[in-house]
Design a binder for these strands. Structure first.
Lengths: 219, 219
DNA sequence: GTCTTGTTTAACAAAAATGTCAAACAATAT
DNA sequence: ATATTGTTTGACATTTTTGTTAAACAAGAC
């Protein structure tokens, strides 16, 4: 009777839409991207977008959660492994360098969207398959065994994320001001950071033999 | 004849508009903010916005350049001074912590806008009253005298900016995941970073006695 | 007073984007 | 062949936002 769920007779329209939407949304932001833009990028009629994903919000939600459920695991994965601390750092930096190389607009896009609409977070954090509290405790232990005492590991995380993300978040600005807008030089810089960032962290942790955060040596 | 340019009979409408527009634009982004939103925030009629600033683009431009010509000098100022290196770092971090505390949406706003519309940069970089190349050369020298050889100072800058900005750029996300959404705890964390970031940089530079960036020790 | 000038407002026009609908189309089943 | 099902399209309706215009208003000049 029924043509038994032919699923794939829609050639690859849905895939094309998802690809195009991902690209356009990341580049222009949720508000900057029009349905027409996306349809053009996908090479299809705009009405088809509505046929496949009722409306813009639903299309965006699909893209956004899809994206994050891809990015988050990658992020925690590096830290969840049982390799030695500095190894984790190195893997994390390298993994992210690759991810960002292919999706340079991702960080600004994600943070802008979350800052605009924090509620979205609730439905997404589920996708993080790791207990953050547990992970932090683990980090603390590892740091202690490295001789770093009394330092909240979240500072390390913030430092690391900041150092890794900044060159992408601030690229247009930073490249123009500090590299005279030399794209090639900047790409080399990005490549160098795979080595520089872990080294920087390593140095910072090697040298920190002093106690908790109350000592201060201001003039 | 003419009532000699009474400038100030417009009570403080223009100021109110600029304030409101700054706030709303930063919070919602250029595209997310409607003229009505801004008028509401300022407590005036929407048409007045057009009376004072012809159209949305002009209003936005005014805000954006005003904002950046306020932020950039603050940024370079810390580095242009002739204090010792670590002192500069400390001043920079502290200055920015204060600025960001009052304008938490600023980084995402600025970077999103620049990434969306890089052309705006051209007209703005003029406001940087410092030659970046010169500043970088200066930094290199200072680092050398600290015993750090062969390291591109731009890595330090990127590290520093990243570490300072990330807790604001990623706040919604980071606070939720790593602080169980405890706002107070996060604010304390932000406060702590004024001390932690310079210390981290200090440690990293103290310990870096090895040579330039060509040695690599991968597995 | 009334004239002039600049400010503010409401009503309207125009533009841009989203969303809906019914008809055309392709492919397979009967 | 035609009926059925899912896909694609163009035309239309709705909504949202921006921009314009003309009239009301306030205040000082004369």
């Amino acid at each position: 009777m029924q043509p038994e769920k032919l699923e794939n007779l829609e050639p690859d329209t849905e895939r094309k839409i998802l690809e195009a939407a991902g690209k356009v949304f990341m580049q222009k932001g949720r508000l900057g991207a029009s349905m027409q833009d996306i349809a053009d990028e996908a090479g299809i009629n705009r009405t088809l977008l509505h046929y496949y994903f009722r409306n813009k919000e639903k299309l965006f939600d699909t893209i956004f959660t899809k994206l994050l459920s891809q990015v988050f695991p990658t992020m925690v994965e590096a830290f969840a492994s049982d390799r030695p601390f500095m190894e984790k750092i190195r893997i994390f930096v390298e993994t992210y360098a690759d991810l960002l190389k292919e999706n340079p607009y991702l960080p600004v896009f994600v943070f802008q969207e979350i800052s605009l609409n924090p509620d979205r977070l609730a439905g997404i954090i589920k996708h993080v398959g790791v207990d953050p509290d547990l992970a932090l405790k683990g980090l603390t232990k590892e740091m202690e065994s490295l001789g770093v005492h009394g330092m909240d590991p979240r500072h390390i995380i913030a430092n690391l994320l900041g150092m890794v993300l900044f060159p992408y978040i601030g690229r247009a600005l930073f490249q123009k001001i500090a590299f005279q807008d030399d794209t090639e030089a900047y790409e080399k810089f990005l490549e160098d950071r795979k080595e520089q960032v872990p080294r920087f962290v390593n140095m910072a942790l090697q040298g920190s033999g002093q106690g908790p955060g109350q000592s201060r040596k201001h003039p």
